[in-house]
Amino acid sequence: MLSTKEKEEIYEETRLYPYPAAACIDALKIVQHHRGWISDEAIEEIASELDMSVEDVDSVATFYTRIYRKPVGRNVILVCDSISCMVMGYESMYKHISDKLSVHFGETTPDGRFTLLPISCLGDCDHAPSLMINDDLHNNLTINSIDEILEKYQ
């Protein structure tokens, strides 16, 4: 069941559009914000809330890369692997993180602390290499700065 808070927030978004289904992406983001990811149940709950079919909601959910249809860790590390970050050496940053946490792209640490994912250009290319952890941008990365940054996320 959608919580009262989720319902309220979804309702606020539906007011910006002519019909409820138009707020589908916003609704997915709201539920993901509260639960960390989008389960099959969440898809069903959103579908009934927005008067959509389950298939329609799932087809939207699976199209968008920032909607997680599988559980993720408490913190999600998004390493930019696009062109400017490649030139500036994202690969060694990735390798460092991957070795340190013993996870590859697409994996979550056994303690559920981190999920490591690649991400397309973060629009921060003049400060490459860049990455995001949850909602925070970190840039001009060096091996040393990464260690400090990771410490902040438990």
């Binding site: 289904a21 589908c24 992406i25 916003d26 997915l28 983001k29 939207v60 199209f63 968008y64 890369t65």
Partner: peptide, 27 residues
């Protein structure tokens, strides 16, 4: 004036895909 925050996918910058995405559909 409203704000919609995207959910990823480069193609949503293409104006007609953006419009579909703003309607809550696949981009």
């Amino acid at each position: 004036l409203y704000v919609h925050s995207s959910a990823g996918r480069y193609i949503c910058g293409e104006e007609t895909a953006l419009i579909n995405s703003l309607e809550g559909k696949r981009g």
